[in-house]
Design a protein around this nucleic acid. Structure first.
Length: 588
RNA sequence: GGGUCGGUAGCUCAGCUGGCAGAGCGCGGGACUCUUAAUCCCGUGGUCGCGGGUUCGAAUCCCGCCCGACCCA
């Protein structure tokens, strides 16, 4: 950890906002209270405490309740009402307009937990028989009976009440209210909290769990300890952080302030976890292969270059692990997989980040048809475990992941869209160029024939595939690592899984004929000479491995970021990568 | 690479045809032992992204640059 420069320390003093916090830090130390202590015994996470005393309502539970609106607040796409019946409160999320504080209303809606609190969502005004809020909460919000807990978390709200203080502390698993009373803590400790604890501080608390009159789960604090003083002001509690630049550059603030952001990254973690578990359950062995490579091959992309000082040679960051994983199949591992980063030296936009996460897996004695079935099972598993259903909404449309997914041949799809068949695309280069020009394909008059086919396909076919679709049997010229199709020498046994217009997975029956593989690499070199900078590089050592014999093998890569984007409902890759690439800017 | 929009207090934002830099939250002080966007009283907070130009006068108009978002290629 670098030391703070003198300049930074001085600059703190010039900010009046932080002056008060620095003063508190100093005074704490003068009183012998260390603002950054080494340890505090924590017995559980906040989420664990909540789940112990809070039952989840069934997904389809609809109820009607009646109560007085204690407060009506605007929220995204509607209002949230604090509805009380004899002090016991429930939150109601509704789109009803003109609700007034102090009025009594009857609402009907779906019972759900929002941020841990039992709430009525998608609610509307209603009439008729109601269920008591007190009874409802009694059913799902259990009595903690003063159980002792010890928790740690960040202070995210403070409400001072004279000789008592309410606050909320938050960790990744949730947030919980804490209640500090002067007569419980004693004069000295109570004053320490009132005078020195700020929004944003990391706090350890020990005390008894109870419910307040309104029904909120709360820790009555008997002892607390400042675990880390926060010296900067926190983002605003109600709006969070909206500035995309701050969200990406200071992701920690985004995670503290925006629950949606926390949700996405927890989802991402679960997807990767389920992927790994499913592959392991099916006999795949997790391996790690080089990221620094002497030849960057295995995909059509330009690599990042770096330099090894000791060996005095250029090295490349991998664009794909493929050729190393297949060496392991040669080596006798029957099923291997790797989850990790690939690096591609290309533009940054909504769907591309220069480093991105792939899972690649290879199974000896499988072909691409085995992989299609396996992919369906894999996706099914992730959907069931992570999302809890096979239909999801994405960008306002429904995606149905119920297997089997649609299967369509590459050239059948093109013929369906253009009326032109395989012969046209593979033989009539001039006609294809004219078509590309008409479609507005960039560089239609410069790029190679192979690239032209690829671009036209992306433009007219891929983007329109919204439901999960296997596009099968690609042209050989686009697939230098895939085995020639058993029925058509112009094609290879390859498929892409396209969902919502994104290429989510790419798989082949792997080419295991070393002579053919050498020919394909040579063809790629010719493409490179014709100006295709993304054409694949020759890897002699890989061919040598194939010469020893690789069993018939199926191999597949899945773009984890894009899969997570679809499941998280975002169309920006930066929303699913914790620290996306941005142009550097001075210290934030 | 081209176009459009944006960058104003710690955060979220307003600021009209150029005329004293604003609000809410936060922050500081005070009251309050069941509050929860707490409430009430008083106070505080600025390199208007950066640099140049026009003007008596620029957050505002013009030019260049930086950073970001979106669209196009």
């Amino acid at each position: 950890m670098a030391l703070h420069s003198r300049r930074e320390i001085i600059s703190y003093n010039s900010f009046p906002m932080e002056e008060a916090r620095l003063r508190k830090l100093r005074e704490l130390r003068e009183r012998g209270v260390e603002p950054y202590p080494h340890r505090f015994e924590v017995t559980s996470t906040i989420g664990e405490v909540r789940s112990r005393f809070e039952k989840d309502p069934p997904g389809d539970a609809r109820v009607r309740v009646r109560g007085t609106a204690k407060r009506v607040s605007r929220t995204e796409g509607g209002y949230v009402v604090r509805l009380a019946e004899e002090d016991v409160e429930i939150l109601v999320y509704t789109e009803e307009e003109n609700l007034k504080q102090g009025e009594t209303y009857t609402f009907e809606g779906r019972l759900a937990r929002v941020e841990g609190k039992l709430s009525l969502v998608e609610a509307g005004l209603s009439e008729g028989q109601t269920v008591s809020i007190r009874k409802l909460k009694g059913e799902y919000d259990l009595d903690p009976k003063g159980e002792e807990v010890s928790l740690g978390g960040r202070v995210v709200s403070i409400r001072e009440m004279g000789k008592a203080v309410f606050a909320h502390i938050q960790d990744l698993t949730g947030r919980i209210q804490i209640y500090l009373r002067k007569d419980v803590l004693g004069e000295e400790a109570f004053r320490l909290f009132r005078d020195f604890v700020d929004l944003g501080d990391i706090l350890g608390v020990r005390g008894k769990v109870f419910r307040t009159r309104t029904g909120e789960l709360t820790v009555e604090v008997e002892e607390f300890k400042i675990l880390a003083k926060c010296l900067n002001p926190m983002p605003e509690k109600w709006h969070g952080i909206k500035d995309t630049e701050v969200r990406y550059r200071q992701r920690y603030l985004d995670l503290i302030a925006n629950p949606e952001s926390r949700r996405v990254f927890i989802l991402r973690s679960r997807v990767i976890s389920e992927l790994r578990r499913f592959l392991e359950e099916n006999g795949f062995v997790e391996v790690e292969t080089p990221i620094l490579q002497t030849v960057a091959s295995g995909a059509n992309a330009r690599p990042f270059t770096t330099y090894h000082n000791y060996l005095e040679m250029n090295l490349y960051l991998r664009i794909a692990p493929e050729l190393y994983l297949k060496r392991l199949i040669v080596g006798g591992f029957p099923r291997v997989f790797e989850i990790g980063k690939n690096f591609r030296n290309e533009g940054v936009d909504r769907t591309h980040n220069p480093e991105f996460t792939m899972v690649e897996f290879y199974a000896a004695y499988w072909d691409y048809k085995d992989l299609m079935e396996f992919t369906e099972k894999l996706i099914l598993r992730i959907l069931e475990r992570v999302v809890g259903g096979l239909r999801i909404e994405y960008m306002g449309r429904e995606i149905d992941f119920t297997p089997p997914f649609r299967r369509v041949r590459y050239f059948d799809l093109l013929e369906e869209k253009t009326g032109k068949g395989k012969e046209f695309f593979l033989k009539d280069e001039k006609g294809l160029r004219d078509l590309a020009r008409d479609l507005g394909v960039e560089g239609w008059d410069r790029i190679t024939h192979a690239k032209l086919i690829d671009k036209v396909f992306e433009k007219i076919a891929e983007e329109e595939l919204f439901q999960p679709t296997f596009v099968m049997d690609f042209p050989k010229v686009l697939s230098p690592l895939a085995k020639t199709h058993r029925e058509d020498p112009d094609l290879v046994e390859r498929f892409e899984l396209v969902v919502a217009g994104y290429e989510v997975a790419n798989a082949y029956t792997e080419l295991n004929d070393p002579i053919d593989q050498r020919e394909r690499f040579l063809q790629q070199i010719r493409e490179k000479e014709k100006g295709d900078e993304e054409a694949m590089d020759m890897d002699e050592d890989f061919i040598k491995a194939l010469e020893y014999g690789m069993p018939p093998t199926g191999g597949e890569g899945i773009g984890v970021d894009r899969l997570v984007m679809i499941l998280a409902g975002t169309d920006t890759i930066r929303d699913v990568i914790l620290f996306p690439h941005l142009r550097p800017k001075g210290q934030p």
